[in-house]
Simulated assay, not measured.
Amino acid sequence: MKIGLYFGTFNPIHIGHLIIANHMAEYSGVDQVWMVVTPHNPLKKKETLLDDYQRLHLVFLAFEDYPKIKPSDFEFKLAQPNYTVNTLAHLQDKFPTHEFSLIMGEDNLKTFHKWKNYDVILKHHDVFVYPRISSEADNNQFKNHPKIHLIDAPVVEISATFIRDNIKAKKNVQPLLPSKVWEYIDHNNFYKK
């Protein structure tokens, strides 16, 4: 089975994530997309980051009607801080018949050379890159790499920071969130302080 791994804090999950994950599930050749919720890094300030399991629950709510997209708490079980190369090794060990690839935004591709053991990732895994709006010159060293696949996906520029800031400012962000996610956030008064 071919699995696309979409990593993120998803704080909160929003329709931009949903659009990209669904596009990857339908058009990239993977059988499933796993939404890998990144746990809170104890070395970083928490500020507005919801509890790991609250964010995982929001991902469940967002994708319960999408059979090709699965929430994943896999990284919750690994030592922190964790690196993508380690997660991939653990996943391959646990699911030896699966073929794992990464899903990332074009902005992450620009710093991919700084990732721990990025060359090992590229040796063993495909990387699917969705477009982002950028004012930087298009001179990425990985653009022509055989393991890098640029996906002609919709450009979605919605940020979780924008959503959190505007919930706090008492603005209506409901259209930017899956309805069940919005209801859960609103009911629990998340991001209001």
Score class of each variant (00 low, 15 high):
Lys2Trp: 15
Lys2Asp: 14
Ile3Gly: 03
Ile13Tyr: 04
Ile13Val: 15
His14Trp: 13
Gly16Asn: 02
Gly16Glu: 11
His17Leu: 06
Ala21Tyr: 12
Asn22Gly: 02
Met24Pro: 04
Met24Tyr: 11
Ser28Leu: 11
Gly29Ile: 11
Gly29Val: 08
Val30Ile: 15
Gln32Arg: 13
Val33Cys: 02
Trp34Ile: 09
Trp34Tyr: 15
Trp34Val: 10
Val37Leu: 04
Thr38Ala: 10
Thr38Asp: 07
Thr38Met: 01
Thr38Lys: 01
Asn41Glu: 14
Lys44Met: 05
Glu47Thr: 12
Thr48His: 08
Leu49Tyr: 12
Gln54Val: 13
Gln54Pro: 04
Gln54Met: 07
Leu56Ser: 02
His57Pro: 01
Leu58His: 05
Val59Ile: 08
Phe60Gln: 01
Tyr66Trp: 09
Pro67Lys: 00
Pro67Gly: 00
Ile69Glu: 10
Lys70Ser: 00
Ser72Glu: 09
Phe74Tyr: 15
Phe74Ala: 00
Phe76Ile: 03
Phe76Glu: 06
Phe76Asp: 12
Ala79Asn: 10
Ala79Trp: 09
Gln80Met: 13
Gln80Val: 06
Pro81His: 08
Asn82Gln: 01
Asn86Ser: 09
Asn86Leu: 09
Leu88Gly: 02
Leu88Arg: 01
Ala89Ser: 01
Ala89Ile: 03
Phe95Tyr: 15
Pro96Gly: 03
Pro96Cys: 00
His98Ile: 07
His98Met: 08
Phe100His: 08
Phe100Lys: 01
Ser101Val: 05
Leu102Arg: 02
Leu102Met: 06
Ile103Pro: 15
Ile103Cys: 11
Ile103Lys: 08
Met104Val: 03
Met104Lys: 04
Gly105His: 10
Gly105Gln: 05
Gly105Cys: 01
Glu106Phe: 14
Asp107Asn: 07
Leu109Phe: 14
Thr111Phe: 14
Thr111Tyr: 11
His113Trp: 14
His113Gln: 10
Lys114His: 14
Lys114Asn: 12
Asn117Ala: 10
Lys123Cys: 11
His125Asp: 09
Asp126His: 15
Val127Cys: 08
Val127Tyr: 13
Val129Asn: 01
Arg132Ile: 12
Ile133Ala: 04
Ser134Asp: 07
Ser134Gln: 07
Ala137Val: 14
Gln141Arg: 12
Phe142Lys: 00
Phe142Val: 05
Phe142Gly: 00
His145Thr: 05
His145Ser: 01
Ile148Met: 03
Asp152Trp: 08
Val155Asp: 10
Ile158Val: 11
Ser159Ile: 11
Ser159Trp: 14
Ala160Arg: 03
Thr161Ile: 10
Thr161His: 06
Thr161Ser: 08
Phe162Asn: 02
Ile163Val: 12
Ile163Glu: 00
Asp165Tyr: 12
Asp165Lys: 12
Ala169Glu: 13
Ala169Gly: 07
Ala169Ser: 08
Lys170Arg: 11
Val173Cys: 06
Gln174Gly: 02
Pro178Glu: 01
Pro178Asp: 05
Lys180Thr: 07
Trp182Pro: 03
Glu183Gly: 06
Glu183Ile: 04
Tyr184Lys: 03
Ile185Gly: 00
Asp186Pro: 02
Asp186Lys: 00
Asn189Pro: 06
Asn189Trp: 09
Phe190Leu: 08
Phe190Lys: 02
